[in-house]
């Protein structure tokens, strides 16, 4: 499908360029120029400047070249390592949990007997576009130790109040819960798009062969969705490594750094401690880690080309219903 739509377009472009080359150049730049200028000013330059800054030391308002000193400091920084450890916990527990729930949710949303489909989809997608402030207020009210709604509800079943945000273990549980609440619907919608590209005939064939719902899910849905699941896993992994919003509003990384993540830590180092050089170094360490993890994920699944193409196919796939 991809070749079918792009080929004629490519041909016509070559045709036009052959005739009026110089003018098209000007027009190209007129279109690309503003975006390119914005990119250079607000993206490329700051990136370069922060890379330079990560090799400096900020001393009394003066920047001095410090080589790799900031990166060496990171190696011996217990908080940095703890933030990576916390991220690892999230990757092991939260990402599979969320993708699993999203998959089940997507299957339910894809059922032909379901009414008010659009409403359901919007309802599940909404959390991911919720304003941070509203989100913060709601969850702090829900999770308050004394008189919070979650603890009140637990109280009806005789469970004593849980210190959701002030106990290192429960704070992590709360964080996993809130991230899952916010991003499950988002992933479910992507998976749903993937589900809709599976031919109806395959379900029918499976039904004729006597497959039940569980078998169909395991033998038809999961294998067909594999590239989309991988796509969701990779974006969720990157999202986890950049986690900031949720733990910033809930716990600001506490208690005892139990919910500290690398990006929140670099914010604290930069803005609370005013140590911008070290913060820049942490930022680049995170970039490096994300890069390495992404390469590993692609290598591990061994089909980066297919994944990218399949994901694109999913997005442009016609809704078959």
């Amino acid at each position: 499908m991809a070749t079918a739509t792009t080929a004629p377009h490519r041909g016509s472009a070559r045709f036009v360029r052959g005739r009026t080359r110089p003018r098209i150049r000007v027009v190209h730049w007129a279109f690309a120029g503003p975006a390119a200028a914005l990119f250079i000013v607000f993206f490329a330059y700051p990136l370069g400047a922060s890379l330079y800054q990560s090799f400096t030391n900020d001393d009394g308002g003066t920047q001095t070249w410090a080589g790799l000193a900031q990166y060496r400091r990171m190696l011996h920084d217990p908080v940095f390592w703890k933030s990576l450890y916390n991220t690892g916990l999230l990757l092991i527990f939260q990402v599979p949990l969320m993708i699993g729930i999203a998959l089940v949710l997507a299957c339910v949303l894809n059922q032909s007997w379901l009414r008010f489909k659009g409403t359901w989809r919007i309802a599940f997608f909404l959390p991911s576009v919720t304003m941070l402030v509203a989100y913060a207020v709601v969850f702090r009210v829900l999770l308050k130790t004394d008189g919070g709604m979650v603890n009140q509800a637990l109280g009806w079943f005789g469970v004593s109040p849980v210190d959701w945000l002030n106990n290192p273990v429960w704070a992590r549980v709360s964080l996993i819960g809130t991230i899952t609440w916010r991003w499950t619907g988002y992933n479910a919608v992507i998976l749903l798009a993937g589900l809709q590209s599976i031919h109806r005939e395959q379900y029918e064939a499976a039904a004729i062969d006597g497959a039940g719902a569980v078998t169909t899910f395991r033998k038809i849905v999961v294998p067909q969705l594999r590239p989309v699941i991988l796509f969701c896993s990779i974006t969720s992994t990157i999202g986890t490594l950049q986690l900031f919003d949720e733990n910033f509003v809930l716990t600001k990384g506490g208690p005892d750094n139990a919910t500290m993540t690398p990006v929140l830590y670099l914010y604290k180092v930069g803005f609370d401690q005013m140590d911008f050089s070290y913060a820049s170094a942490i930022a680049w360490a995170v970039v490096l880690i994300i890069g390495v993890l992404s390469v590993i994920q692609f290598r591990f699944f061994g089909q980066s080309e297919n994944t990218a193409r399949d994901a694109r196919k999913v997005s442009s796939g016609r809704r078959r219903r």
Binding site: L47, A49, S50, Q242, G270, S280
Partner: peptide, 14 residues
């Protein structure tokens, strides 16, 4: 989003 972490510091630092 991949760049935002670096950007947050870079914009102010740059």
């Amino acid at each position: 989003r991949a760049g935002i972490g670096a950007l947050a510091v870079a914009v102010t630092g740059g």
